[in-house]
Amino acid sequence: MADSDHNWRLWGERDPYYAVLTDARFRSDRIEDHRQNFFESGQAFVAHWLTQFEAHFGPLPRQRALDFGCGVGRLTIPLSDHFETVTGLDIAPAMLEEARRNSAGRQIDYVLSDDALSRVEGTYDFVNSCIVLQHIPVDRGMNLLGQLLGRVRPGGGCLIQLSTKRNHGKWRELRYRIRHAVPGGQAVMNLIDGRAADTPVMQMNEYPLDAVLRLFHENGFEKMVVRYEDHGGTDTAMIFARRD
């Protein structure tokens, strides 16, 4: 299996905004012309889903929020408009440095992540992770999800997005499996596609929704809302829930 952490660190160094939102406008050589669009998309996303959460579950405490897989701060920054303090977690140091530059003057603490969330302290009123877990192998991702859910304090909530099914077609799926699961496949497929051998790639892992919902239940989430989304040909689930 291709090393998802290594690839994400490379994305952070080479093309951080495009890695967060795979839109050609956000490539490194174009981001300055489209920076406002990038961050406005994050503001709209956060406002929409907080409104959806409170429409279903009532008022949400607004002291502390955690953004897992924060990238360059696209969602972390608008979260700081709604919560007193925010913590952003990411595995890529270059992403964190860019996020800090984007967040000057805000009450945001950017922290290097690991599989144990060892640098995170306490519990939170809201935990967010969107367009992140799909890039992490399922076994690791389920462990991380359990830890994230455990960080939600009673009465608090979360918004979690993950992928459940790749709808690539046979040829594209074969290419995906060679790139991600065959030793050396990433380099070979990059060369076939006319790219540098070490060009980073992104995994789109398939999470079993039944096991995910069971994990929510085991962590004290009795009330959940699941929304289906088509994310570029991949089935994804957007789950928002309150912890009892």
Rank of each mutant, 00 (worst) to 15 (best):
R119H: 07
L149C: 08
K170Q: 15
P183S: 00
L149Y: 03
L159G: 04
P154V: 02
L133S: 09
A116N: 08
I108E: 05
G150N: 07
C130R: 15
G122W: 06
H180Y: 06
D114G: 05
I178H: 05
S118E: 00
L133Q: 13
W171A: 15
F126V: 06
K170W: 15
Q186Y: 02
N143V: 11
P154F: 09
L133W: 15
C130S: 13
R177I: 04
A116E: 11
L133F: 15
G184P: 09
Q147G: 06
H168M: 08
V120G: 12
T123W: 00
R151N: 09
D125Q: 01
G141I: 04
R140T: 09
G155N: 10
R166D: 15
R153V: 01
L159I: 07
L148S: 04
Y124K: 00
G185Y: 03
V182P: 12
V138K: 11
Y124H: 04
T164Q: 09
L117T: 02
R177W: 02
V182D: 09
R151G: 04
G150K: 08
T123A: 05
K165A: 13
Q161G: 14
G150D: 03
S129V: 02
A116T: 01
I131M: 10
G157W: 14
H180K: 05
G169I: 04
D114K: 07
Y110P: 07
V111T: 05
Y176L: 07
T123L: 07
Q147I: 03
N167W: 13
N128V: 04
K165D: 10
R177L: 11
G185E: 00
R153A: 06
D139T: 01
N128R: 03
F126E: 07
S118P: 04
L144A: 10
Y124E: 00
G156P: 11
L148A: 08
V182M: 02
R179D: 10
D115P: 11
T123K: 01
G146K: 10
T164E: 15
